[in-house]
Nucleic acid binder design. Structure first.
Lengths: 238, 238
DNA sequence: GTCTATAGTCGGATAGAC
DNA sequence: GTCTATCCGACTATAGAC
């Protein structure tokens, strides 16, 4: 068992604290979350927060670095995959347009997966709070994830619509597209009441995905032709 | 000046406290918001919160009742207008479908107006927080506004797409549609960084509205015919 | 209806033993 | 690295003067 000792006791405490901190911060907000409550949830002593992170604020930032690492692991492969597929078919014309649309479906499918399976409710609450009042933690979030995802969508939208990739119009479209799928996690209360989805079951997510695909296809019409999906079934990319 | 005395000093204090409470609650969250800070922001004594509302929790609920009144004043006329327009043209067929699409544009335009001009940043933060962890205040919000707005959209979507109004598919589409426009207020941080919109100027909102109209038209295609907008320019309805 | 003063609780940060 | 004990400030709610 010297293997588990490879991560020192301190490192384990550190991660345990971060995981508990995400839960407590997300529930109460930064100010109302007490370091005592975080320590209790983590099963460690309160003094260890100061020892490992220096202050409550620094613990808060550490939680964002932690979440960012996980989110980036999901986004980066998407970026690479898109670049590869586009490089393989570098020519212009309707085929490229259809490829871009297929890639868009794949990317958005992956985003739906990411936010429905991997991203916890508490993560959503934390990320949303920073969106509302961007602070130090938000810069991490934007630079690390949001900007990459939005740029990726712009690239694809640009190819499908012929809008310039850097244009405001294209960026707005990317923004709206993201809103269309993220609303499922943002308006949790409305989803519960209006759709009757207490929790996001795999079945619910599948139904949502079907409607989103319909919406996507009509939003960005391509010339009618047989669909050649780039990576198997849409959205199975991981 | 007996006219201004018609609202007693107490009523004025009450409203002042509510307005300040919205600001403070939205910034810090319920737990971290201090009644002291609210009282200072309102320029009244801290003890008056207990006197007028009984407790911090009741003040919190009062803020939602206050916001709800304002939101309902915007939503109800929309519902009535849609019902009237649909009653006037009660027949089926492509004309009705196009009417429904025009009504959808008008309704969503009004929603964009509502959330960009009338609904304050602090309102958005409060409403979002309740969405994330629905509490007592959320029931007020859902029954008073959200359910009405979503049902209205379902009615129109159903006519344009032939999806049954009560079907899950139709409800999901309504949900996504709302997400597409609300993202502008929800992802404030991303809007600032990615679109460069520090504040939502009228110009920014106009650009957003244009892109949304494009998206809407392609999402819900009707048979090509001359557009007969129901109430003048789309979205000028108030 | 409004104000002051205060009781009682809980917060973050830290010093020092182990 | 971990724990106990403690300082001091801020919190809600309330009692009572005006």
């Amino acid at each position: 068992m010297t293997n588990t000792d490879a991560v020192s006791r301190g490192d384990h405490t550190r991660e345990t604290l971060i995981i508990s901190a995400i839960e407590v911060f997300s529930h109460s907000g930064f100010d109302a979350a007490s370091t005592r409550a975080i320590a209790v949830a983590a099963g460690v002593n309160q003094g260890l927060i100061s020892y490992h992170f220096g202050s409550k604020q620094r613990l808060y930032l550490a939680t964002f670095e932690y979440m960012l690492d996980h989110l980036q692991c999901q986004i980066k492969p998407l970026e690479q995959m898109v670049s590869q597929e586009l490089a393989k078919a570098a020519h212009v014309g309707p085929e490229r347009r259809e490829l871009a649309l297929n890639l868009m479906q794949t990317v958005m499918g992956a985003v739906i997966d990411l936010f429905s399976e991997q991203v916890d409710d508490s993560w959503v609450r934390l990320l949303l709070r920073e969106q509302q009042e961007p602070g130090e933690a938000y810069k991490l979030l934007y630079d690390g994830v949001m900007s990459h995802l939005l740029s990726l969508l712009c690239r694809l939208i640009s190819m499908v619509t012929d809008l310039p990739e850097e244009s405001e119009a294209c960026r707005i479209r990317a923004f709206m597209l993201l809103g269309q799928v993220l609303i499922l996690r943002i308006a949790t209360g409305a989803a519960t009441c209006f759709l009757g989805w207490e929790t996001l079951s795999a079945c619910n997510v599948a139904a949502f995905r079907v409607q989103f695909q319909h919406s996507l296809e009509s939003q960005f019409p391509v010339l009618p032709s047989c669909s050649t999906n780039v990576s198997g079934e849409a959205g199975t990319y991981n």
